[in-house]
């Protein structure tokens, strides 16, 4: 079972990144839940979602107290959620917007200059897919090909974005 909290500003693709993971799980015949924050705080600008993926059995709780992975797209998200990541867990940090170092030293931190890499790969809005690439590389949650085919299926109605979305994902995946 993998419990992932994905958080950032509204508009950074936080919710759609979570949905991509759940689509991938569905296409792989795994079980998954996607639960967004829908409270009044969204109007102030932050958004987050909780994703739980289980290869074997239906997901029970969609609520995450202790996460296996945090994807932090901005500083308030890192501050709010980093101490809830389990010992030995993974924290993927968008270092384009976050200059702080991770305070949860029991977890593995991965820093990704996602905004710059997205820009270099022709899609300023796809920093979430750069982050997704880095996350998939470090977690091994799905084979790379599963995410690439998921991107093709999910964005089938917007085919003009598929090449740059895939390029951004690949660029994130290629990082050490």
């Amino acid at each position: 079972m993998e419990r992932i909290v994905i958080a950032g500003f509204g508009g950074q693709g936080v919710l759609s990144l979570g949905q991509l993971l759940v689509y991938a799980a569905m296409y792989e015949n795994q079980y998954a839940t996607w639960l967004p924050s829908y409270g009044p705080e969204m109007r102030g600008g932050t958004a987050n979602c909780s994703v739980v993926i289980d290869a074997e059995k239906p997901v029970a709780s969609p609520i995450i107290a202790t996460s296996d992975t945090l994807i932090a797209m901005n500083k308030p998200s890192l501050d709010k959620f980093q101490m809830s990541v389990k010992s030995g867990g993974l924290i993927v940090i968008n270092s384009s917007l976050i200059t702080d170092k991770c305070a949860n030293t029991a977890a593995k931190a991965v820093y990704v200059d996602a905004n710059r890499i997205a820009h270099e790969n022709g899609n300023n809005k796809a920093s979430n897919l750069v982050i997704l690439g880095a996350y998939i590389r470090h977690s091994g949650l799905f084979p790379k090909e599963v995410i690439l085919s998921t991107i093709e299926k999910v964005y089938a109605s917007k085919p003009q974005f598929i090449p740059s979305n895939k390029a951004c994902f690949e660029a994130g995946f290629a990082l050490d």
Partner: peptide, 10 residues
């Protein structure tokens, strides 16, 4: 409740 309404599952 809102959790059931907003949650996404296959």
């Amino acid at each position: 409740d809102g959790m059931l309404g907003q949650i996404m599952e296959a």
